[in-house]
Design a protein around this nucleic acid. Sequence first.
DNA 1: TCCCCTCCTGTACCGGCGGTACAGTTTTCA
DNA 2: TGAAAACTGTACCGCCGGTACAGGAGGGGA
Lengths: 209, 209
Amino acid sequence: MRKGEETRTRILDVAEAAVLQKGFGGTSIEELIAETGITKSGFFYHFRDKNELAKALLNRYIENDERIYDEIFGRARDLVDDPLQSFLLGLKLLSELLSDLPNGHPGCLVATVCYYERLFDREIQETNRNAVLAWRRRFGRMLREIMAVYPPREPVDVDQLADMVSSVLEGGIVLSKTLKEPNTLAEQVLMLRTFVKMLFLPVAEMPRA
Amino acid sequence: MRKGEETRTRILDVAEAAVLQKGFGGTSIEELIAETGITKSGFFYHFRDKNELAKALLNRYIENDERIYDEIFGRARDLVDDPLQSFLLGLKLLSELLSDLPNGHPGCLVATVCYYERLFDREIQETNRNAVLAWRRRFGRMLREIMAVYPPREPVDVDQLADMVSSVLEGGIVLSKTLKEPNTLAEQVLMLRTFVKMLFLPVAEMPRA
DNA sequence: TCCCCTCCTGTACCGGCGGTACAGTTTTCA
DNA sequence: TGAAAACTGTACCGCCGGTACAGGAGGGGA
């Protein structure tokens, strides 16, 4: 049981890196087995077909993603009491984490799946959809706490604002990868932070001169 | 010359729709020739290989994209003198255009290429990079005009703010497609508009009661 | 009218890949 | 030590990207 899990994980590791660079259609099973040093039969022992691999890959990615957000915003919550300051700190920590990635963000599997949708079954599409909805709920929850204390300077829909976090992350990844500027993603998160700050923080000071 | 261009365009039309739904790796040449009613030899008469098709596809997409932005923000410029109000109107018009798309936004080729990078040659990657840089310059130009009149409420880097427009668009497309909620993209653009408004517009009124 | 160029069609072929089938072997752990 | 788990090896299928090349329809200019 133990050994099997290890091999499975190794396949998933190799597959994830490949898929994020070349998409699902561009990643061949043959190259995966070559890199993991397993045989074709061995691969199909673990995954019935490519769709099954995609399913496992996506689920693992989403779980890991959730864990990272839990940790970052959980830490921010522990350090600061105020919901707004805590959220702003969370975005700061997230931005730091992203700018510490040595080769930039490798890409988001949710986006990859989104741009390959037609070749996946309904289950994967639903999983992907639910992942995005989970982001909406997560950030929405925090934003609602903020709104209970700070009235927004402009009228905004909470869900749409929560989606903005996801948008900037997904879009920032695309920009960062395309430009080959690893730091762009981190900067975009800080830009979003500025937006949130401005939206909720009471006018602090008068413009000088 | 006329007939050839027409066939070429038909291939590109079919290919674009397919690629946006299934990615490059997931789109087979055989299905393209089946749908356009051309033979395999006919296809390879127009495009040397898949890479050549991708190149043509991407260039056409980028040109069309630029034309749309030229038109929208050009119209906004004609209607309103003030650079800030003009930009805000442009975002409004863009949001309306996006929410009028019957089946939602079909997807962005730049993002598709970004998530398939490793299987393309340097030329395509450079083209893609330049497209994103062109967005940065485009929105940067408008934002600089705004900043010459309106001091931003918070210190922001112009290029990063310009990138925010691209981020929200790219991210909004991913969200919209994944959620199968066509309107999410338009809402995200309006959210961005709120941000820009808040950043540059002087405090308009006191919060009531 | 003839010829040439553009724009294709038809046919045959290659190797890689996803996937299947299944028999046999090694490794692990209770 | 024995059964289950975790593989290997081999053979095969059909689709796909790509190559090669011969030939043909149709229009436009000399």
